[in-house]
Design a protein around this nucleic acid. Structure first.
Length: 259
DNA sequence: ATGCCAACGCTACGTTGA
């Protein structure tokens, strides 16, 4: 079988995105889709969206906040909720093994402000993630909304964002540490024509003005990117009616094949 | 400094998001 394509998408409520998600699965048809911010409890999760397009799906969510899922056309093994696999705490991580690759769908805490206790929680959560990655044998893929723009080029205006979350040194250090233990930021191989940003605020016509940030990341074991990799941001999904404020990111891995 | 938009929930406006 040919290379596998993985997508990640913060849908900002899966029930509000049923039609657009159905379109995405049919038109883009990734082998694997990592979803964040489903904002729904497990009992009300709309599994049928995935099943009618030929996907199986695993989800961890609670009412209203957070919520993560992985949908796959291939079998999923060793499903674990939470980055410790303990299924406690906020529903921000779910993992499964697909065709020999450990896949994580991640929704990193926002942080709110640099002097907010939630920011400490964000850094601790990322530190815990690093420990999990160090213990996890390659190959793996970390996909999701990291709520960190790794570099100044990943935001529309670094000056305007000075002092804000998502761009601070400790947050960027946490991402750099993930790269130091063997993961590669797939956007570093992006096609020139792909838009850079993955999130644009709903307000003030930010999308039209391309006032965005790249905060949705796909970090993968280096072996998966050989002999080839393709990366793109699906800006059409952000341009659609009733969009999420995030666009999907799609990565095709030459070093990952199923079946 | 705030609202600008969107989504949620014991349908009404406070909370969260980034």
């Amino acid at each position: 079988m040919a290379m596998l394509t993985l997508a990640t998408w913060n849908v900002n409520s899966i029930r509000a995105r049923v039609d657009l998600l159905g379109w995405f699965l049919e038109e883009r048809s990734p082998d694997v889709l990592c979803v964040q911010e489903t904002k729904v409890e497990d009992g009300k999760f709309p599994e049928a969206i995935f099943e009618r397009s030929g996907y199986r799906v695993v989800h961890w969510g609670v009412s209203a906040w957070n919520g993560v899922a992985i949908a796959s056309r291939l079998p999923m093994d060793r499903v674990e909720r939470g980055i410790a696999g303990d299924g406690v705490g906020e529903a921000r991580a779910i993992a499964a093994t697909i065709a020999g690759v450990r896949v994580f769908s991640l929704y990193v805490p926002n942080g709110r402000a640099l002097d907010d206790p939630h920011f400490v929680y964000k850094l601790e959560w990322l530190s815990h993630l690093l420990a999990v990655v160090k213990d996890q044998p390659a190959p793996m893929v970390l996909a999701g909304d990291f709520n960190v723009a790794p570099a100044d080029v990943d935001v529309y205006d670094p000056t305007a964002l000075a002092g804000a979350t998502h761009v601070s040194a400790p947050e960027r250090r946490a991402i750099a540490q993930l790269l130091e233990v063997g993961l590669v930021d797939c956007a570093s191989r992006q096609e020139l024509e792909s838009p850079r940003f993955t999130w644009w605020d709903y307000r003030q016509g930010a999308f039209r003005r391309d006032m965005g940030m790249r905060i949705d990341l796909v970090l993968a074991s280096a072996s998966l990117l050989q002999p080839s990799v393709e990366y793109r941001v699906d800006v059409e999904a952000r341009r659609a009616a009733k969009p999420s404020d995030h666009a999907p990111v799609l990565v095709s891995f030459g070093g990952w094949s199923g079946g």
